[in-house]
Amino acid sequence: MVWFRPKYIFIGLFLAVAIWFSMEQTQFEFEKFKNIPNMFHFIREQFFPPNWGILGRLIEASIVTLSMAFLGTIIALIIAIPLSFMAARNTSRHPILCWFNRSMLSGLRSIPEIVFGLIFVVSLGLGPFPAVLAIMLHNIGVLGKLISELIESAEQGPQEAMKSVGATRWIAVLFSILPQIWPNVLSHFFYRFEVAIRTSLILGFIGAGGIGQQLFNHFQTFQYKSVAMDIIVIIVLVIVVDFIGGKIRERVI
C-alpha cells in the first residue's frame, strides 16, 4: 500500500496533535454547538424586519466605501505596474535593484491594512483619507508581487522579436509583455478591488467612515434592524462589483 509508510503515520500523528493543540488554544468545544439555536433565535427576533428607512443614508455611505476601495486599489495599480517591472527577474536592470524592489514589496505586503489604518487614523485624523492610504500601501505590495510574477512567466518570444527590430529596452519590454499579461492584471485588480471593499468595512470600525462605520455604530448601539439593512447593502454592493468586474474582463479578453 503506497500510503502505508511510517512517514505518513508520523505526519498523521503530528496533524492530530496540532489540531488538538489549536482547539485547546481557541477553546473550541463541541458542546458549545448546542447554543447555535440561540443564534437563529437572535437573528429572527432582532434582525427582522430590516430598517428600510436608513437605505438612503446607507447608499451614500456605500458610495464613500466604493470610492475608498477604488481609489486605494487604482492608485496602487498605477504605482505597482512600474515597480513590478523593476522587481521581475527578467526585466529588472540589476539583480540588486530587483532584490531591493522585491523586499520592499514584500515588506508592504506583510503589513495588514488595519495596521496602516490604525497608524494613519491616529496621525492623519479620522475619515476615509487614511483608509485610502492604508488600502493603497498594502495593495502596492500585493499587486506588485502578482504582476511581477506575471511578467516573469510571460512568453520570451515577443521580447526577442522586439529586441531584433531594434527597439529600446523599455519599449521592447513594455510592448512585448504588457499586452500578454493585461487580462490577468485586470483580473487581479478586480479581485483586489473586491477585497478592498471588504477591508474598507473593517477600516470603518476604526473610524474611516463609509458603510463599515455605519455597521459598527449600529452594532455598538444594538440597532440590529439597521445592522440587517447594512448587511443587505454590503452583500448587494459586493455582488454588483463582482458582476461589473467580470463583464469588463470578458470584454478585455
Binding site: 518570444g157 515577443p158 526577442e160 522579436a161 512585448s176
Partner: peptide
C-alpha cells in the same frame, strides 16, 4: 522566428 513571436492581442 519559428513561433512567429508576434505581440498577442
Amino acid at each position: 522566428f519559428q513561433h512567429f513571436n508576434l505581440i498577442p492581442r
